[in-house]
């Protein structure tokens, strides 16, 4: 149903996993600094961007999010030394995986936002809302539609499935 929503009135839902030490603090700072930004974002605080397992990102995308933002400390500033580098590794794998499956990987963003950068947090949310509005609703968010509208067109070739004989 969400597919029929008029693109102009489409308000994307963003799930943001923000690290306790930087990005979450930046969101806090944006608030206390009275910076206005779109209300499309739902934030979830995590202790470190490196602890965000891709399963949570995939679950969010399958359950109604149009985009997922993972926010961590600026590289080199991680409270746990290297958590954000590992978050980046996880994101490299997730993006390559989604690309290989023909799924739009640009709905999943990784940004480094320092605790003192409320302005950057605001800007990222503006930027992301705009990008997601241009993309339209996430086609993954209604799993039953996916099953129902799968065309059965993917015929396992003989090379792929000798068991199917």
């Amino acid at each position: 149903m969400s597919n029929q929503i008029d693109k102009d009135n489409f308000e994307p839902k963003i799930v943001a996993f923000l690290c306790h030490w930087c990005s979450y603090k930046a969101a806090d700072l944006a608030g206390t600094s009275r910076l206005a930004y779109p209300t499309n974002v739902r934030t979830i605080r995590t202790m470190c961007s490196g602890s965000v397992d891709p399963v949570y990102i995939i679950k969010a995308l399958l359950d109604g999010a149009d985009g997922v933002l993972v926010g961590g400390c600026v590289l080199g500033d991680c409270h746990y030394q290297s958590g954000n580098y590992k978050a980046r590794r996880k994101m490299i794998i997730l993006h390559a995986q989604l690309r290989a499956l023909g799924i739009d990987e640009d709905r999943v963003w990784l940004r480094w936002i320092s605790a003192s950068d409320g302005v950057m947090f605001r800007d990222v949310i503006f930027e992301m809302v705009e990008a997601l509005k241009a993309k339209g609703p996430n086609p993954m968010k209604n799993p039953w539609d996916i099953w129902k509208s799968a065309k059965g067109g993917w015929k396992p070739k003989t090379i792929n499935s000798p068991r199917g004989e």
Partner: peptide, 21 residues
């Protein structure tokens, strides 16, 4: 060639749903 063929087939989530039907 198997990888190329797979890449051509996979255009959206529906294609994965086809495989896992």
């Amino acid at each position: 060639s198997a990888f190329d063929e797979f890449r051509d087939k996979m255009q959206s989530m529906n294609d994965m749903a086809d495989i896992l039907a």
